[in-house]
Design a protein around this nucleic acid. Structure first.
Length: 108
DNA sequence: CACTTGACGTCTT
DNA sequence: TAAGACGCCAAGT
């Protein structure tokens, strides 16, 4: 396993402010591993549930929840809404508002 | 060594 | 906007 990669990604994951979301590719890039988006997904998928990691704050680059249709996706949507993030039909998230670190803050 | 498999991303229809 | 083609990188078979 690559402990350095895991540490770096986890650091970025924990850096996401509550109520905001980031993407796999962004986390990988911030961690210092560009084009390793798939590995971030694999890491989160393999991550222990009781670790307390905010894995639910990570969505795909299109702003959609990964693996749509699965119970995990529904659970993630639930957690995001609990976190104050609006999730549209199909597990869509408006990255213009909730995206991190680039959030545009289009608030009424 | 060749091929497959991913919680992915960007570009083109 | 939705859907498909390609590209990407590491790990497993």
């Amino acid at each position: 396993m690559d402990a350095a990669f895991e540490r770096a990604v986890l650091a970025q994951l924990l850096a996401i402010p509550p109520g905001q979301v980031s993407t796999y590719g962004t986390l990988a890039a911030l961690a210092g591993y560009p084009r390793h988006a798939r590995h971030v997904g694999k890491l989160l998928g393999n991550a222990p549930e009781g670790a307390g990691w905010p894995w639910f704050r990570v969505v795909s680059g299109s702003g959609k929840v990964a693996r749509p249709g699965t119970p995990e996706a529904d659970y993630q949507i639930l957690l995001l809404e609990e976190d104050g993030v609006e999730v549209g039909p199909g597990g869509r998230v408006n990255l213009k508002r909730y995206g991190w670190p680039v959030q545009y803050f289009i608030r009424p």
